[in-house]
């Protein structure tokens, strides 16, 4: 009798475990779907988050940051476009994380890269970076990113140079920073300056995805720099600017146009700068 009971129990366990695994699979699928379709989460404003953290601010900051990362990563994985609310959520999350733990480097770096390249919310990015610069007084990277943002996105070369000088005064900063700062204040808008910046940035970046996008950007800038250089030669020899890119080709100033990695067409702006129809932004990915 006891043996039969034992048998029944073991049967229950095995059958149950089987059903459980099957259900688990369904559950995970369901969760994936639910997470993808639910709206953004809500981040407690930092004054409440401080209380909620119950004395474990660091841990709570880590947890929130992980949450933010996952959220963003999932959207990336499914190639879904982020809505304005999604971005608000990201910004609020990073704000709270850095309020809870203002010395936490990762959220600053994440914010600086995502908010600028992907969505061009420079004010948010710069606000985060300035917070970081204030707190991480030993870290040259944050004012460096600030300088880059001012140079590259905001075209505010003087301010950018100031931040770079600030970065160069911090320990272990690369030796080229003062040169870069000087160069920036003299000939701000040349593609070469941007390439230098990017090279420093690439050397600092570990994240594969971000690094790749920086490398593409660098390739684009190098293309632009090459064309700008040829335009300069054209101007020196002909005393006028070329009408368009094709003129450079026709006149033999350039044998072959460099590849535009974003898939756009090269343009010469009225200012003499070279740009692309893609505006150096990757075309929106389709699912």
């Amino acid at each position: 009798m006891a043996a039969r009971k034992l048998f029944v129990l073991i049967l229950i366990v095995f059958v149950g475990a089987g059903v459980h695994v099957g259900l688990s699979r369904k559950v995970w699928e369901n969760r994936q779907e639910v997470r993808r379709t639910t709206q953004t989460g809500y981040v407690f404003p930092s004054q409440f988050a401080r209380i909620l953290a119950l004395g474990h601010k660091g841990l709570y900051a880590d947890y929130l940051f992980l949450n933010t990362l996952t959220f963003f990563g999932e959207r990336q994985m499914y190639r879904e476009n982020l809505t304005k609310e999604d971005w608000d959520y990201l910004v609020a999350g990073l704000d709270t994380v850095t309020d809870l733990d203002p010395y936490f480097l990762d959220p600053y770096v994440l914010g600086a890269s995502l908010l600028t390249w992907d969505i061009r919310r420079f004010d948010d990015a710069n606000r985060l970076l300035e917070k970081g610069t204030r707190h991480r007084t030993w870290d040259w990277r944050l004012p460096y990113y600030l300088g880059f943002n001012h140079f590259y996105f905001l075209k505010d070369y003087n301010k950018g140079a100031e931040y770079l000088m600030e970065a160069s005064r911090r320990p272990q900063s690369p030796s080229f920073l003062p040169t870069l700062a000087a160069r920036l204040s003299y000939y701000g808008d040349q593609a070469r300056t941007g390439i230098l910046f990017l090279m420093a940035l690439i050397s600092q970046t570990k994240d594969e995805r971000l690094r790749n996008s920086l490398l593409i950007r660098k390739q684009a800038l190098e293309g632009a720099a090459l064309i700008e250089e040829r335009i300069e030669r054209f101007r020196k020899e002909r005393g006028r600017a070329p009408g368009d890119i094709n003129e450079l080709l026709k006149e033999g100033y350039i044998e072959q146009l460099p590849e535009e990695p974003y898939g756009g067409k090269w343009l010469i702006l009225p200012t003499g700068r070279v740009f692309s129809t893609s505006k150096f932004v990757a075309p929106p990915k389709k699912k």
Binding site: W28, Q32, R35, L66, N67, L69, T70, F72, G73, E74, Q76, M77, D106, K206, D207, R209
Partner: peptide, 12 residues
């Protein structure tokens, strides 16, 4: 969160 983070391919 951990599982989806790992699967998300977005990590440092």
């Amino acid at each position: 969160d951990v599982l989806f983070y790992i699967q998300s391919g977005f990590r440092t």
